[in-house]
């Protein structure tokens, strides 16, 4: 690992480019994710936002940002990034282009535009802050919503399995794809650093537990994220050149019920349902173990 990479929490830069005073909810992990990402990307960064919770960070006439920020609409973060890449090049402005959009804006309505930018391999960092629902409108079902999760539009629990967005992005043969969670900030920020270093498009799927939508106390966001990883439900990995590499392997996986029972959105599940989810997770990890936690997903 290069020297410039972070090894411990206190290696994280002090400077904040996203400050307080904004109207994100108490305990919002999405604003935390942006705050952390900007720490390592630094002041020479332009943020493009797709409509969602984070769109309400700048509310006229005040902004919590110290870097340029533009929001156009929900479904065009990729297109705006493409244009901005060329425009900044023409203006001789050297800056990281950070797309920061929610999962609804990424997995669903913005997929076409993101795919266009990925196919062109635009040199930008795209972080999907994934709260597994249309969060800003009040936690409606999205294609990122995991199976069994209840939402305001799937009160009985979602039937379908969520989209494998990192695999879709990897299929564009972009140089860097990763998943992350702000509960593991060193892992997350090293991935952001790597994303900034690669030439071309980098995609990071950032799991951001949402107290309001998922139904837990605002003080528990970091714990919930940690449980998502330690139970093996949210896997932390990178995909480089079609090769998946797990960056965190829980030594002893915790039972999924610990994660599921902590959230209102899974409160309707029976012990049987939870058992079935546990079986699925176990099976997936046995497969991963058999492959040495590293495998090709593309030919």
């Amino acid at each position: 690992m290069k020297d410039s990479y972070l090894k411990k929490l206190t290696d994280i830069p002090m400077e904040d480019y996203l400050v307080g005073g904004h109207v994100a909810c108490q305990g919002c992990s999405a604003s935390l994710g942006l705050r952390l990402a900007l720490k390592v990307l630094g002041k020479d960064t332009v943020v493009i936002n797709g409509s969602g919770c984070m769109t309400l960070l700048p509310v006229y006439p005040t902004t919590p940002l110290r870097v340029p920020w533009i929001h156009l609409a929900i479904e065009n973060t990729g297109a705006a990034g493409t244009a901005l890449y060329y425009a900044l090049r023409r203006k001789n402005i050297k800056a990281n282009i950070l797309g920061y959009a929610g999962d609804g804006a990424t997995y669903d309505i913005g997929l076409q535009s993101l795919s266009g930018a990925a196919e062109k391999n635009i040199d930008m960092i795209y972080i999907c802050y994934n709260n597994q629902s249309f969060g800003n409108t009040g936690h409606q079902r999205a294609s990122s919503t995991p199976r069994a999760s209840s939402t305001s539009t799937t009160p009985g629990g979602k039937v379908e399995v969520e989209k494998d967005m990192p695999a879709i992005m990897a299929a564009h043969r972009i140089p860097y794809v990763a998943t992350a969670c702000p509960s593991y900030p060193v892992d997350f920020l090293n991935k952001v650093k790597r994303a900034a270093e690669v030439k071309g498009m980098a995609y990071i799927d950032l799991l951001v537990p949402c107290p309001v939508g998922w139904g837990f106390d605002p003080s528990e966001g970091i714990d919930i994220g940690r449980l998502a990883v330690r139970t093996g439900i949210w896997k932390l990995y990178e995909i480089v050149d079609g090769r998946v590499n797990l960056t965190y392997i829980p030594k002893k996986r915790r039972g999924v019920s610990e994660y599921l029972r902590a959230q209102g959105r899974f409160s309707h599940l029976s012990e049987e349902d939870i058992g079935a989810i546990q079986e699925e997770v176990d099976e997936a990890w046995e497969g991963l173990e058999a492959r040495g936690y590293e495998y090709e997903i593309m030919v």
């Binding site: 005073g21 904004h22 006439p61 005040t62 902004t63």
Partner: peptide, 18 residues
């Protein structure tokens, strides 16, 4: 205001007492 909906003062949200 000059007719353009742009916020020019960085970190001005610190004025808000959340």
């Amino acid at each position: 205001a000059n007719g353009v909906p742009v916020i020019r003062e960085p970190a001005s949200a610190l004025k808000n007492n959340t």
